[in-house]
C-alpha cells in the first residue's frame, strides 16, 4: 500500500499524458503519426535536458533559476569557439560541457559553503550567464549554417529520431541509473528529505549538493549544444525563462518541490505533457497561444493539489 501511494503521483502523470495523447491523436489527423511522435522528443530536447538537471537540484531540496541563461551562454560560447576560433565540434562541445558543469559547481559551492538561499544564488547566476552571453555577441545571433559539422549533425536521424532526441533519451536513462544505483544518487534524495539526518548518517552532504548543481549546469550546457545544432545558430536570447517550464515539468512529473521524492522518468513524462500542450494549437488553428499558459497553470495546480493529498494520505 505504501508502495502504491508513493507511486501514484507518477501514475497520475502517465495517465494524463496517455489520455492527452490519445485524445489528440483521434481528434487531429497526423498527430498520432510516428513523425510527430519523434518530433515531441526533438522539439523538447533542450527543455528536457534542463529539466533532468533541475530534477537533481529539486530532489536535493534546492532550485536552479539559471538553466535558461546557461543554455544561452553555452550555445554562444560554442558558436564563438567554432566560428571565430575555428575549433571543431568535437573539441569545442566538451569544453562547453565542462564550462557548464563548472558554473553549476560554482553556484552549488557558494550555496553549500555560505548557507545562502539557492533561489538568490542561482538568480545571480542567471543574470551573470545571460549578461555574459549578451556581451559575447553584442546581443547578435551567430549564424552557423555554413559550418559543415553543424549542418550534418542537424540532419542526422535514426528511425526518425534526431540527434537531439537521442541525447535526451540517453540522458534520461543515465540520470535514472545514477539516481537509483549510485551512492551519490541516494545521498541527493537523503539531503532533500532530511539534511541533518543525512549528515548524522555520515553521508557526503556537501559533495552531493555541489554535485547536483554541477549536473544541472552540465545538462543545461548539453541543452545549449543541442539548441545550437537544432537552430544552426548561437543565440544569446535563447531559452528565455525556460527555467520556469523546466520547474513546471519537474513538478508535473511528480517530484516534490520540497525535495526528497521524485524521479527522472516522471520529469520526462512532464516534459512530454508540456510538449503535447504546446503542439496542439499547431493542429487546431483557432486555439490561441495564451490558452497554453492557462492550461499549464491549471495542470500545475491539479498536480500540486494531488501531491498534497498524497502526502496527507501517507501521513495519516
Amino acid at each position: 500500500m505504501a508502495r502504491f501511494t508513493r507511486h501514484w503521483p507518477l501514475l497520475a502523470t502517465a495517465v494524463v499524458l496517455i489520455a492527452l495523447y490519445a485524445t489528440a491523436a483521434i481528434a487531429y489527423p497526423g498527430f498520432g503519426s510516428w513523425f510527430q511522435f519523434t518530433r515531441f522528443f526533438s522539439d523538447n530536447a533542450t527543455l528536457g535536458l534542463a529539466a533532468i538537471g533541475m530534477t537533481f537540484v529539486i530532489l536535493s531540496g534546492g532550485i536552479d533559476l539559471s538553466v535558461g541563461a546557461v543554455i544561452a551562454l553555452s550555445s554562444m560560447v560554442l558558436a564563438v569557439l567554432m566560428s571565430r576560433l575555428d575549433l571543431s565540434m568535437w573539441s569545442a562541445a566538451p569544453m562547453v560541457l565542462v564550462l557548464g558543469a563548472a558554473f553549476g559547481a560554482f553556484m552549488g559551492g557558494i550555496i553549500q559553503v555560505f548557507r545562502l538561499p539557492p533561489f538568490l544564488v542561482t538568480l545571480a547566476g542567471m543574470f551573470l550567464a545571460r549578461g555574459a552571453a549578451l556581451l559575447l555577441s553584442d546581443a547578435k545571433r551567430i549564424d552557423m549554417k555554413d559550418i559543415e559539422s553543424v549542418r550534418s549533425l542537424s540532419e542526422r536521424h535514426i528511425a526518425g529520431f534526431s540527434l537531439a532526441a537521442m541525447v535526451l533519451v540517453a540522458a534520461v536513462v543515465i540520470a535514472a541509473a545514477v539516481l537509483r544505483f549510485t551512492r551519490f544518487g541516494r545521498t541527493v534524495y537523503a539531503i532533500g528529505s532530511d539534511e541533518s539526518a543525512a549528515r548524522l548518517m555520515g553521508l557526503p552532504v556537501a559533495r552531493a549538493r555541489v554535485g547536483a548543481y554541477s549536473i544541472s549546469g552540465l545538462c543545461a550546457a548539453a541543452g545549449g549544444v543541442v539548441h545550437l545544432i537544432g537552430m544552426q545558430a548561437g543565440d544569446a536570447s535563447a531559452a528565455f525563462l525556460l527555467e520556469l517550464d523546466a520547474i513546471a515539468a519537474v513538478v508535473i512529473g511528480g517530484t516534490l518541490l520540497a525535495g526528497g521524492r521524485g524521479s527522472v522518468i516522471g520529469t520526462l513524462l512532464g516534459v512530454l505533457i508540456l510538449g503535447l500542450i504546446t503542439t496542439i494549437p499547431n493542429y487546431q488553428g483557432d486555439l490561441n497561444t495564451w490558452w497554453i499558459k492557462i492550461v499549464i497553470g491549471l495542470l500545475l495546480l491539479a498536480f500540486v493539489l494531488l501531491q498534497r493529498a498524497a502526502q496527507r494520505w501517507t501521513e495519516c
Binding site: L244, N288, W290, I292, I294, I296, G297, L300, V304
Partner: peptide, 20 residues
C-alpha cells in the same frame, strides 16, 4: 502548497489570463 509553487502557478497562468 509551498509559496514558490503556488505563485508559480499564477505566474505562468496569469500572463495567459492577461492575454486572454
Amino acid at each position: 502548497v509551498p509559496p514558490i509553487v503556488a505563485t508559480l502557478i499564477l505566474m505562468v497562468a496569469g500572463r495567459g489570463i492577461a492575454q486572454l
